[in-house]
């Protein structure tokens, strides 16, 4: 009897609970507690700006469901970088044209002496032209990626432009390596003579003698302007190499946000360096009489050297009968 009453109580509890359960469910539907897109977006923080979850495929990155910020790069890439690149290149060409019209070609004031002095030996010139050749191809194919769509595609059509750009991409990817090697070589060869010193201040004060005829501030092997070019190439080139490497190996770089950052830096540095190099090409060719010989035959006219690198000529002449050794960087 005692067991029976206990059983009845237990039964009553079971019945009561069993009966009450559907009521409770009718009031609170557990499936209603669903995660909403709005709530997930609100929970987003600056660092991990993505709605992410779990995927059953091996690519864990596919777990990022929505990353709205990725879109912001589209505006940057599609318009801002394009505009900046065009401004950098066209702006520099315009500036140089203006300079040429005002100043004209910078002549050797004393005229050519006919005596030659060795300025850059074979290794120097090899390093320079490897760097220069690869840079020009890299710059043109890179610029094509940014502005070709606007400038070239309408002229030659989508098919031809696609083929051209595909070859450009291959050239860009592979020539990046000799560029990096030449960059290291150039750094090692010329870094000692490119360390800034007091002479550079005087050179800059006199505008490098670029603006006025007959003005020739003293300089050693490299003047302040050349040092600016050197360090721009070394630092810019290093930046381009690093970001370019990351873009070649996106798995190493990380997430789309990283790729976007590297691409943006790569494009900005490339635009800036291209502008600087255009100026360098100008002054090394049409801009200045006698300048090209330094990288052409490697031997410059003595009068040219005296006007632009007076202290360097003195240093070389002070060396006892070692004209042939002039090619190697001085200590």
């Amino acid at each position: 009897m005692r067991y029976f009453s206990q059983f009845m109580v237990a039964l009553a509890v079971v019945v009561f609970v069993g009966h009450a359960a559907p009521d409770a469910q009718a009031q609170v539907n557990p499936t209603e507690r669903s995660v909403t897109e709005e709530s997930m977006f609100e929970a987003l923080t600056g660092d991990s700006n993505a709605v992410s979850g779990r995927v059953s495929i091996p690519d864990r990155g596919a777990g990022n469901l929505i990353k709205p910020d990725n879109k912001s790069w589209a505006a940057l890439q599609g318009s801002t970088l394009q505009t900046l690149s065009i401004v950098a290149v066209v702006g520099m060409i315009a500036l140089l044209t203006l300079f040429y019209l005002v100043r004209g070609r910078i002549r050797v004031d004393a005229g050519f002496s006919g005596r030659k002095i060795l300025r850059f030996g074979t290794i120097d010139r090899f390093a320079h032209w490897t760097l220069a050749g690869t840079f020009i191809v890299l710059a043109i194919t890179g610029l094509n990626l940014i502005i070709g769509r606007t400038v070239i595609l309408p002229i030659i059509g989508e098919g031809a432009f696609g083929t051209l750009t595909a070859f450009g991409k291959i050239a860009h990817n592979y020539l990046a390596w000799p560029f990096m090697l030449a960059l290291v070589l150039v750094f090692v060869l010329w870094v000692l003579e490119n360390i800034p010193n007091k002479l550079d201040l005087e050179w800059i004060k006199q505008g490098g003698g670029l603006l006025k005829k007959g003005v020739h501030p003293p300089a050693k092997k490299f003047n302040a302007g050349q040092k600016v070019i050197f360090w721009s190439v070394i630092l810019g080139g290093a930046g381009l190499s690093f970001t370019g490497f990351m873009l070649l190996f996106p798995a190493v770089a990380g997430t789309p946000a990283d790729w976007q950052m590297y691409q943006t830096i790569h494009a900005l540095v490339a635009a800036g360096l291209s502008a600087i190099i255009i100026a360098h090409i100008y002054i090394g060719s049409v801009g200045m009489e006698g300048a090209f010989d330094a990288m052409g035959s490697g031997e410059v006219d003595e009068n040219w050297a005296k006007e632009h690198h007076a202290l360097w000529v003195e240093e070389e002449k002070a060396k006892p009968a070692k004209e042939s050794a002039l090619s190697t960087p001085a200590e």
């Binding site: 990155g61 596919a62 990022n64 469901l65 929505i66 990353k67 709205p68 910020d69 990725n70 879109k71 790069w73 589209a74 890439q77 990626l145 989508e158 098919g159 432009f161 696609g162 750009t165 595909a166 991409k169 873009l247 996106p250 789309p256 790729w259 976007q260 691409q263």
Partner: peptide, 19 residues
């Protein structure tokens, strides 16, 4: 998209919010 024109540069994957 046109696969004949595509050069496989990867830019679209940088910009796509949906992967």
């Amino acid at each position: 998209h046109n696969k004949d024109t595509c050069i496989g540069c990867g830019y679209c994957s940088y910009a796509c919010p949906f992967g």
